[in-house]
C-alpha cells in the first residue's frame, strides 16, 4: 500500500502528505470549534417588532449582553404589526417591540398559538414630523394640513397647501405599513376613512428618513422623536397645531400631554410562556428596571415614571411566578 502510494503519485508524495496533514488539522480544528458552539445550547432572547422602539431595546440589549455575555439577544426591525403577525404570535420570538397597543385580531392570533402577551410600557414618544432646515416657509402645520399632505389622492405640491409655499412636488418619507408608527399616524392624523398615500419612500429603517430629508429642501418625513433628537441640526421638527395653537415636539410637551395628537406610549410585549426561560426572564426584568432611567431619555424618549415601573415589575413577577410554579 505504502509503496503503491508513493509510486502512483510520483513527485508529489511529500507535498501531498503534509498537505493532507495540514488539511486534517484544519478540519478537526473547525469541527472542534463547531462542537464547542453546540455545547452551550439555549440562552436565546429573540425580539422583533417596532423600529421606533428599536433604539431603546438596542441600548438595553447592548448593556444586557455586557452583563450576561453568554446570552444571545437578537432584534429584528419588522414593524409592530409585522412583528406581532409574523413573529411574536407565531411563536417565533419571545418579545415584541410595539409603538401601539396590540390589536384584537393579534390577541386572537396569539391565543390560537397559546401565546399570552403581557404588555409593559417602556417610554413615551412624541411622533415627530420633520422637514429640511432650509424649508424656512414652514414651522408649524395643522392636523388638517398634515392630512391633506399624507392622504391618498391628496396634495402633490407644497403650493397646494398654501399659495405662498413653493410650487414644488413633495418628497415624502414615512413609516412602512408594517410599522406601528404608520398605524398610529394613520389613526391620529388621517382617521379611519382616509387612506395613507402609497407613493412615498416607505421604510422600517427610520434613520434613512433622516438621510433623505436632510438631502432635499422639499422633503418631509415622520418618525419617533428619538431619530429627530439624534440629529437636531440636520433636520427641522415641525410644530403641530391640534386646534390649540402650535406645540413643538419635545420630551417636555410629550410628558405634559400638550403635544397632541401625536404623543404616544411605547411598549414591549413579552410572551408569558417564554418567561419560563431564565434568559427571557432576566432580560425582561433588566429592561423594565432601566425603563425609568436616563438610558431612555438619552435615546430620545420620555422615561416612564417610577410608579409605572413598579406596577409593571409587579405584574411581571406575578406572571413569572405563574409559569415557573
Amino acid at each position: 500500500m505504502m509503496s503503491r502510494d508513493s509510486t502512483a503519485s510520483l513527485p508529489t508524495a511529500v507535498g501531498r502528505r503534509d498537505f493532507l496533514a495540514a488539511a486534517g488539522v484544519a478540519l478537526s480544528g473547525s469541527l472542534a470549534g463547531c462542537s464547542s458552539i453546540l455545547a452551550t445550547e439555549g440562552d436565546q432572547v429573540n425580539i422583533a417588532g417596532s423600529s421606533t422602539v428599536f433604539p431603546v431595546t438596542e441600548a438595553i440589549g447592548s448593556a444586557f449582553s455586557e452583563e450576561y455575555p453568554t446570552i444571545n439577544v437578537s432584534i429584528s426591525q419588522t414593524g409592530t404589526g409585522g412583528g406581532f403577525g409574523n413573529f411574536f404570535c407565531a411563536g417565533r420570538t419571545d418579545i415584541n417591540n410595539a409603538s401601539r397597543e396590540i390589536a384584537d385580531a393579534e390577541i386572537e392570533q396569539c391565543g390560537k398559538n397559546s401565546i399570552t402577551p403581557i404588555e409593559l410600557t417602556v417610554a413615551t414618544d412624541a411622533l415627530t414630523v420633520v422637514v429640511n432646515p432650509d424649508a424656512d416657509w414652514v414651522d408649524c402645520l395643522t392636523v388638517e394640513q398634515l392630512r391633506e399632505i399624507w392622504s391618498a389622492d391628496g396634495a402633490e405640491r407644497w403650493s397646494d397647501i398654501n399659495d405662498d409655499w413653493p410650487d414644488e412636488e413633495f418628497e415624502l418619507y414615512g413609516a412602512a405599513t408594517t410599522s406601528g408608527t404608520f398605524d398610529y399616524f394613520n389613526e391620529a392624523v388621517l382617521g379611519e376613512d382616509v387612506n395613507h398615500r402609497s407613493d412615498y419612500y416607505a421604510t422600517e429603517r427610520d434613520r434613512t428618513i433622516v438621510q433623505g430629508v436632510r438631502g432635499s429642501e422639499v422633503a418631509m418625513g415622520y418618525f419617533g422623536f428619538s431619530f429627530y433628537s439624534e440629529n437636531p441640526n440636520s433636520i427641522k421638527a415641525v410644530s403641530i397645531d391640534d386646534g390649540n395653537g402650535c406645540v413643538e415636539p419635545s420630551i417636555e410637551t410629550a410628558m405634559s400631554g400638550e403635544y397632541t395628537p401625536l404623543s404616544r406610549p411605547l411598549f414591549i410585549y413579552v410572551a408569558k410562556e417564554s418567561l419560563a426561560e431564565p434568559a427571557v426572564r432576566d432580560f425582561t426584568r433588566f429592561y423594565i428596571e432601566r425603563a425609568a432611567t436616563d438610558l431612555v431619555s438619552e435615546v430620545g424618549y420620555v422615561p416612564i415614571t417610577e410608579e409605572k415601573r413598579d406596577e409593571d415589575l409587579e405584574r411581571l413577577e406575578e406572571a413569572i411566578e405563574e409559569v415557573t410554579a
Partner: peptide, 18 residues
C-alpha cells in the same frame, strides 16, 4: 429615488418575511 425589483424584495423581506 427609485425602487428596483431586488430592492422591493429586500423591503418586503424585512417586514413581512414569514
Amino acid at each position: 429615488s427609485i425602487q428596483t425589483m431586488t430592492a422591493a424584495m429586500v423591503q418586503i423581506g424585512t417586514g413581512d418575511i414569514v
